[in-house]
Design a protein around this nucleic acid. Structure first.
Lengths: 147, 147
DNA sequence: TTTACAGTGGGCAAAAGTGGGTAAAAGTGG
DNA sequence: CCACTTTTACCCACTTTTGCCCACTGTAAA
């Protein structure tokens, strides 16, 4: 499982060097083959290819007639892009996705269980600040859960 | 169980010397392997690695579509970082987390049961003062409980 | 007063992260 | 279908960070 945020700078070719601590795991898990796509939160999602597969199948099985699920299909499946780590452990973030997520030079790669999120650093910091309080009360899912 | 607050100074590399009274316990419990992450209260949480694991699993199992739990996943899992005590019983507090919690040179490591909290000393003192009174009444969880 | 040890600081080497040059491949237009 | 431009992939070099080690200081106990 992946966890933790790593500040990384994209070079001027749009390449992202995967932190060494994740490389070995990614190579054994998916031979460095990743799928990168758009997330509704204006960040990118980075999946090991075998982790992505069932998610894509599930999305494709949703009703084409429900506008909400149709939008979700378009966003996620429609933006998904196969990328592969090069010899130096870097991946090229496709220009359209870079633009979608507003990625500038400084980005943050965030481990989230079986996948990663990729954020522009400014957006990430704003996101984190907004998580500091539960302004609408505590979600029922968290009943009986303690840190 | 860990208890009590210890004032510690971070050196200029951001390293924190774990108090000797905790070292033996931490080594036998987790071989010096800790997980340090962000807390909504703008301090850091320090878990022995095996104590953290189930918490992360629980967090990862929450819904990705609920904005509140998503934020919590991002804050906690997205900032979690594996650290290991060095030969001198020190851990390196990752720079992004140092910044998140506003840690300067003087910090306080606070034992809280199975985990620790790590505070900038100024924030800790403010926190303590604000805990002195229940200004919004007594939480129902405390019914029938006395110190 | 001496000794031991917790706490602190800093040097050094290895590894990670970053940047750029060049060649091959893909895409575009005539 | 061919030529040209742009993009991508691979390689190498440099800078910064991290991990490991050892030395110094202050406090507490003998």
């Amino acid at each position: 499982m992946f966890r933790g945020g790593t500040p990384i700078s994209l070079d001027n070719k749009g390449r992202l060097a995967v932190p060494v601590k994740y490389r070995e795991g990614l190579i054994s898990l998916c031979a460095g083959r990743l799928v990168i796509t758009a997330d509704p939160s204006s960040c990118l999602l980075v999946y090991p290819q075998p982790v992505w597969e069932p998610i894509e199948q599930k999305l494709n099985s949703l009703s084409s007639f429900n506008p909400q699920t149709r939008s979700l299909q378009r966003l996620l499946v429609g933006n998904a892009s196969d990328v592969e780590m090069d010899g130096a452990g870097r991946i090229l973030v496709p220009p359209p996705l870079r633009q979608f997520a507003g990625l500038n030079k400084d980005v943050v790669l965030v481990g989230q269980g079986a996948k990663f999120e990729l954020w522009d650093d400014e957006k990430w910091n704003l996101q984190i600040e907004s998580a500091l309080v539960f302004k609408d009360g505590i979600p029922p899912e968290l009943d009986g859960f303690s840190l």
